[in-house]
């Protein structure tokens, strides 16, 4: 089956007016117009299979939102081309509109002056949904997003969390095959974030193709299997999220609590290659190790030989740590591979 989203050699160059500061600069610009080109997206190749959940991450200004706008047909690429389900975004605008859903976390598509229920009804008619499908979808969204109290509320009176839940439902109401979620959890409290993330999982499980852009990497973990990292308009990594973690997040930390104080030197001797740190009390100890050198089980067994264990837990580094190291240049990917 051909990929549902396909971008080839996608490039977007914006032309920005170049003005000297102040009124004089503005006046000068009127007479002699100078522009600078800014390359927002730089020769991107991307293909997404139907049903995939792709995380699209990168620092601010890396070109994430521009890519989303290109892939949804809002922007026309400077060079290169996009195909959605084999269709051309500008030529088949209406057909594509039925296939894609877009959520920009910072913007709302709800009517400010209408109750959410009425906004949904307008969308239902814009997309030509029949009453039964509409009711069924709304009921399903209600299960996860808890729309009950939101439906009769006016768009402008919603709290941020309510608005985002309503906007998510609005973006999905027509049952798009592909959704672009651009910062869907921005500014939300933890409880609402959890709901929203649960909603993502139901989407994925139903076979919707999801491209998720987020700064909150907890949105990604446990949801996307594929990770695409963009920086300065270029894709610097495209591959399996688990593989990245294996490669760049091998470190584990074992925290142990024992009945009697443990001699640190003895632990160091028993576990060469691991870094041992003393905890807050003499009964606590932390062991940092590479999971390809030492297993957690081996470490626990070794410690159990030295003292009676009361409790232990293993910390895994999050993908967040990995991506932070990528941004800071600590990890350099040689090629787009994993």
């Amino acid at each position: 089956m051909p990929p549902i989203v396909e971008a080839r050699d996608l490039t977007k160059v914006f032309r920005r007016p170049e003005k000297d500061p102040g009124l004089a600069g503005s006046l000068k610009h009127l007479v002699r117009r100078r522009f600078t080109d800014k390359v927002a997206v730089d020769h991107i190749d991307l293909s997404i299979e139907a049903g995939e959940a792709v995380a699209y991450v990168g620092p601010n200004g890396a070109g994430k939102s521009t890519t989303v706008k290109l892939l949804s047909g809002i922007l026309v690429p400077t060079t290169g081309e996009v195909r959605i389900d084999g269709l051309h975004p500008q030529h088949d605008r209406t057909a594509i509109a039925h296939r894609i859903g877009v959520l920009f976390g910072q913007r709302t598509q709800l009517w400010w002056d209408l109750p959410v229920r009425e906004s949904f009804a307008v969308l239902r008619d814009i997309y030509g949904l029949d009453a039964a499908t509409y009711r069924k979808r709304l009921a399903r969204f209600d299960e996860v997003l808890d729309l009950g109290e939101i439906l009769p509320t006016l768009g402008r009176k919603l709290s941020l969390g309510q608005r985002m839940r309503a906007d998510l439902a609005a973006a999905m109401l027509h049952g798009p095959r592909v959704v672009y979620l651009d910062e869907p959890t921005i500014g939300l409290d933890l409880q609402v974030k959890d709901k929203v993330r649960e909603f993502f999982r139901t989407l994925r499980d139903e076979g919707t193709t999801v491209m998720l852009t987020s700064h909150d990497l907890a949105d990604i973990e446990g949801f996307c299997r594929r990770l695409v990292i963009i920086d300065e308009g270029r894709i610097i990594f495209d591959g399996d999220l688990g593989a990245v973690k294996d490669q760049y997040a091998r470190e584990r930390i074992l925290h142990v609590e024992t009945e009697q104080p443990v001699p640190v030197e003895a632990v160091r001797l028993a576990l060469p290659g691991a870094v041992i740190t003393e905890g807050e009390t003499p009964n606590q100890i932390s062991v940092r190790f590479d999971r390809f050198v030492l297993t957690a089980g081996h470490a626990v067994t070794a410690l159990a030989g030295l003292a009676t264990l009361v409790d232990f837990r293993v910390d895994e580094p999050s993908i967040e740590d990995v991506i932070r190291r990528v941004y800071s240049g600590e990890i350099l990917f040689d090629a787009k591979s994993a």
């Binding site: 002056d113 906004s119 009804a121 307008v122 239902r124 008619d125 997309y127």
Partner: peptide, 18 residues
């Protein structure tokens, strides 16, 4: 309801807010 009728109706309802 047609797409355009629905949008007209939306404004007809919302206008009372203003």
């Amino acid at each position: 309801m047609g797409a355009y009728t629905a949008q007209a109706r939306g404004v007809a309802l919302g206008i009372l807010e203003y």
